[in-house]
């Protein structure tokens, strides 16, 4: 199977240009900048201080923001990628071109991923400049890791959104499914894990608990950022339940990458049927 990069680039370019033209990228970047600035400045308020305190506290505060915001934005961005074209009636025209369904899917995904990445990097990048001025270059190194993992988190949820857009029969169902995914992974998943752990008095599931966390890209993102900084690790208290061997950044990055590839692969399989 050979892929045609020109056709994929044409689809991706059109998707990306659409998001630039309708000011989606600008709007999302501004939202990220505003929230990140406020949270970075007031993040240490609980400890009785305001201002850009330390990179650890800043990242700890931003992690929570990103876990709520980026999955939601990625799901909204991608939920109608395919089903929207089908519902508008433009899918047949696209597929009548000398392009495979996989190329169309990849083009769509890459274009949307580029838009999401640009808005994430631009939004948090502005805050990065402020942090550089206040906290120094070393802080920026950790912050760059945080931005990179934020991009990966966005791409994994975007991948799920594109899968939803392939499976759903109409846009209404697709939006419902996307919201359900957000609720499950961002709000319910950890609650269920914690509930199961507490209900069993910690007797069962202790060993598989960290593995189960890998089944949620939002948790993988959290652990990636928590384990990279000592102060944040203790702040979250997660080091007691998450073995350090499993928390190696390269392993977690691999898991996160799997969360990008797997839903996209399932979507491609379904779309070909």
């Amino acid at each position: 199977m050979t892929l045609a990069p020109v056709q994929i680039a044409a689809i991706a370019g059109k998707e990306f240009r659409d998001r630039i033209r309708n000011r989606w990228v600008l709007a999302v970047a501004l939202v990220f900048t505003a929230f990140a600035l406020v949270i970075a400045y007031f993040g240490a308020a609980q400890q009785g201080a305001v201002g850009f305190a330390s990179i650890e506290v800043t990242i700890a505060s931003l992690v929570s923001l990103v876990i709520y915001l980026i999955p939601l934005i990625a799901l909204i961005l991608g939920f109608d990628a395919i089903v929207g074209e089908r519902e508008r009636g433009s899918l047949d025209l696209l597929l009548s071109m000398p392009i495979t369904r996989l190329e169309l899917l990849l083009g769509k995904y890459l274009g949307l991923a580029a838009a999401l990445t640009l808005s994430t990097v631009a939004g948090f990048g502005l805050v990065g400049l402020v942090l550089l001025a206040n906290l120094g270059a070393n802080a920026l190194f950790h912050y760059a890791g945080f931005v990179l993992t934020s991009v990966l988190l966005g791409m994994s949820f975007l991948s799920m959104a594109v899968a939803v857009s392939v499976f759903a029969t109409d846009r209404t169902r697709a939006s419902g499914l996307a919201i359900a995914l957000w609720f499950f992974f961002v709000l319910v998943f950890d609650l269920l894990l914690l509930g199961a752990l507490v209900a069993t008095g910690g007797r069962y599931g202790g060993e598989i608990f960290p593995w189960l966390m890998l089944a949620n890209p939002a948790d993988v993102f959290r652990v990636l950022n928590v384990f990279s900084l000592d102060e944040v690790r203790s702040l979250y208290g997660l080091s007691t339940v998450f073995p350090e061997g499993l928390a190696a950044p390269w392993k977690l990055t691999l898991v996160m990458t799997s969360w990008i590839i797997a839903p996209l692969g399932i979507a491609a399989w379904r779309f070909e049927r």
Binding site: A4, Q7, D18, N22, G89, S90, D92, S96, P98
Partner: peptide, 30 residues
């Protein structure tokens, strides 16, 4: 590549100009 198709309800992309629309489909068609 040797087929042209005009669907019943032609849906094009509102954000693109007429020329961009044709250029987009030209690239898809090689």
């Amino acid at each position: 590549r040797r087929i042209g198709f005009l669907p019943e309800n032609v849906v094009l992309y509102d954000n693109l100009s007429a020329l961009e629309t044709l250029q987009f489909f030209a690239r898809l068609k090689g």
